[in-house]
Nucleic acid binder design. Sequence first.
DNA 1: CGCGGATTCCACCTTTTGATGGAGGCTGCG
DNA 2: CGCAGCCTCCATCAAAAGGTGGAATCCGCG
Lengths: 211, 211
Amino acid sequence: MTATPIRLLLADDHPIVRAGLRAVLETEDGIEVVAEAATAEAAVARAAEGDIDVVLMDLQFGKGMNGAEATAAITARPGAPRVLIVTTYDTDADTLPAIEAGATGYLLKDAPPEDLAAAVRTAAAGRTTLAPTVADRLMNRLRTPGTALTRRETEVLTLVAEGLSNQAIGNRLHLTEGTVKSHLARVYTKLGVDSRTAAVATATDLGLIRR
Amino acid sequence: MTATPIRLLLADDHPIVRAGLRAVLETEDGIEVVAEAATAEAAVARAAEGDIDVVLMDLQFGKGMNGAEATAAITARPGAPRVLIVTTYDTDADTLPAIEAGATGYLLKDAPPEDLAAAVRTAAAGRTTLAPTVADRLMNRLRTPGTALTRRETEVLTLVAEGLSNQAIGNRLHLTEGTVKSHLARVYTKLGVDSRTAAVATATDLGLIRR
DNA sequence: CGCGGATTCCACCTTTTGATGGAGGCTGCG
DNA sequence: CGCAGCCTCCATCAAAAGGTGGAATCCGCG
């Protein structure tokens, strides 16, 4: 069974988390941690050297490239390793870019160690593992496409979240204030709220905008 | 030197982080991990049993009591262990309540393992260790007390960030709408803004409120 | 005890925002 | 082509929010 162990690269900016992943996975048969990376850039470089089957990738790094960008860079190459996201957050704003970038799976850091090992093996086989909350979110998204904001609506709402007035947003986007109001009115009905601050709050919760 | 080892309790809802802390600290002379807790409530209960010198406490737990509340509960008892906060975030909204609750130190999870061990020893001796960014923030706060929001102002602004109207905030806090306006007006001048959404945006940037 | 800061409340007035109901132009697609 | 969805703009009215200037209470602290 352990003829060819699964070779892992741990990419996380927290030494403590790397140590934890190593401790949890090292005891597993057929899994071998062969490298660590403290930055997304280092992870991409190490993955390019080959010799890796699965990358455990965090999404947030203190500085520089983020995990989703690194995932895209890694999976773009032929014969690339699988990338399994292991992170703390599970909002749309995190999960969707990561999945688009070609991640093979998405786990949360509060997952029990057994799930982690199982997900690594699943990823090595090229199949997908999603954390339950992430799976739920994706299903809901597919079931209720009406909630989706259009590009323009998202753009306007993002500026609202930065604290701009309708007037200022109009200037920034070369629109009249009335048009900004129109967009926002539609955003409010889609989100089921009735004020700009409430819209920002729920959109942030739903991960529709980032902050 | 190792006559009486420092006895540790690890409180964090992520098994991976607990494993990482254990792995990092276990190799240190004179430090012994004697218990783990996956919830804040369990940490309080275990600390009450005695036998613990230092608690490593996360601030965010998935459900129930948070780390600051648990810290207050633990340090309230006579002969209580020291509490060293080890978390990912370093905003005012996190650090200030934790320090008020009686934490002996505040470290970030991206700290190198050596710093962690050193902080544990410092905490056991009853002295304080602060992560550099946290120390900076506190110094700035002492230098510019004008920017500091009062407890009530922060409370009101937090509800604003959740999307509530002045009226709704008044009801929630048992205030008149006029009083809410008064608080917000002072918040606006302190932050140099002129709208609720702008206040939320800059307060979030400054780490005055959490989101 | 007196002071300053925090908290609570008030009134009046201006500006911004939201609700409603259209309307015309553009684009992609069956 | 014709429809659907998106984007743009408009006017009008009602409701929040913000600006200003007080004012009274409470509390910790020197």
